[in-house]
């Protein structure tokens, strides 16, 4: 009797969880955080090319996208320097009355989830480790959107963002931009986040043809 109750509760929780996930994913386009004021952005910077691309995107966003919380891999010095350089140039280009926005960014470090040469099985372990760091980070920052473009670190951070929505704490929009180096096939991160993201951008028409939910605006970086 007790066992049946436990099994039933677990099943019920699973059903509720999946239903909530479905509702959260399906209703993303109706959620307009920008109408209420500034949009807090969690920016997942990868390394090298990923960081360069995402900074190009951020450059075009208006001051409404504030504050910006950058997440970088703890081994990645170069991205950190690029972010500081980018933020200081952004601060200078704004008018002096807005100079307080210079400090409206933070940099958070989490363990890298997948090095280029890492095997698949150890990727799983380190992704779980990254999730352990992502949950407290996203639950504390509670951003309006997660902006990411491909590094493996995206997945646990987006999962944490979705969980906030599933629990009804905060609807976190997931904006994914597939790297321009993906011409014919999605990256592993892209394939995972394609069904889960609210806005999924691709930069080559061949990908738009294969993935009908994706948004193609030509090259955007």
């Amino acid at each position: 009797m007790f066992l049946e109750a436990v099994v039933f509760s677990v099943l019920l929780l699973c059903v509720i969880f999946i239903t909530r996930l479905y509702v959260v994913v399906k209703t993303g386009s109706k959620h307009k955080p920008g109408a209420k004021g500034p949009v807090a952005v969690l920016v997942v910077a990868g390394s090298g090319g990923h960081t360069t691309e995402i900074l190009r995107l951020l450059e075009s966003l208006s001051a409404a996208y504030t504050p910006r919380h950058y997440v970088i891999a703890d081994t990645d010095r170069m991205s950190e320097e690029k972010i500081y350089a980018f933020e200081s140039s952004k601060g200078q280009s704004q008018s002096q009355s807005q100079s307080q926005s210079q400090s409206q960014f933070t940099i958070c470090r989490i363990p890298r989830s997948r090095e280029v040469h890492q095997s698949w099985s150890s990727s799983v372990v380190s992704t779980l480790k990254a999730l352990q760091h992502s949950l407290p980070l996203v639950f504390t920052l509670r951003p309006d959107m997660v902006l990411c473009n491909g590094p493996g670190t995206c997945v646990p951070l987006c999962a944490a963002g979705l969980l906030l929505g599933i629990l009804g704490i905060k609807r976190v929009l997931i904006v994914y931009v597939e790297s321009i180096c993906r011409v014919h096939s999605l990256s592993l991160t892209g394939r995972i986040l394609y069904p889960l993201s609210d806005y999924f951008f691709v930069q080559w028409s061949s990908l738009r043809d294969r993935y009908p939910k994706s948004i193609f605006l030509g090259r955007i970086v």
Binding site: S29, K32, P33, G34, A35, V39, L57, S60, L61, S62, A64, Y65, D144, M145, L173, V175, V177, Y199, F201, I215, L217, G218, I220
Partner: peptide, 12 residues
């Protein structure tokens, strides 16, 4: 183009 799309989508 990305910024304009996102502004519209998010109601900024």
């Amino acid at each position: 183009n990305f910024a304009n799309f996102l502004d519209r989508a998010l109601g900024v």
